[in-house]
Amino acid sequence: MVHAAYEGGFANSVLGSQGLFRTLMDAMARPGTVHPVTTLASPPAGLNSTAGAILLSLCDADTSVWLTPDLARNSEVREWLGFHAGAPVTGDKAAADFAVIADPCRLLDLGAFALGTQEYPDRSTTLIIAVEALTGGDLMELEGPGIDGRIGIAPKPLPPGFTAQWAANRARFPRGIDLIFAAPDAIACMPRSSRIINQPGV
């Protein structure tokens, strides 16, 4: 199945990357807002198309990517990522520039990823969580830079104990991870500066 690695990249990599990046930039600048995306990439099964497209638009030989174990074992996904982005896959969460969480139902330890340092807080992992949808889950209410007052978002599914994990991440500010929720048809972001102010699901 070698050919699978060579297919499913951007049809127009220059403008495809630019368009998706602008959506991401807008989503990161306005946490919790939902931004529709069209299907730009067709990665092998296991990686959703939006998460795949985000990797292609941001990763290359200079960035290492950590994949959840199921994905990491999937040679098609690794080869696809290698061929289209040239990005090395790492097994070390704390060394990853990007991480893809393909099975958000599992427990997730945000503190195990690269968190940056006080001097260089930017040297931290950006997490891409592949979700089914950005609505229908437990409603999280967010506050922080980029948000006019507060905003609600309800991605589905979320890792168990996510709220407590996020509170710990927020407490490390300016260190911490940043998060991109990638649904098949939309994107939303939660940078480390966002605070969850309710108790979702309670």
Partner: peptide, 30 residues
């Protein structure tokens, strides 16, 4: 020259820096 002059690898590097800059308002990303 590429669209918007910069090569794609350079653009990706700058785009990654921009996302981190937005996530840490006011912090200067090298």
């Amino acid at each position: 020259y590429n669209f918007a002059y910069l090569d794609e690898q350079t653009k990706r590097m700058i785009r990654r820096a921009i996302l981190k800059a937005i996530a840490i308002p006011g912090y200067q990303v090298p």
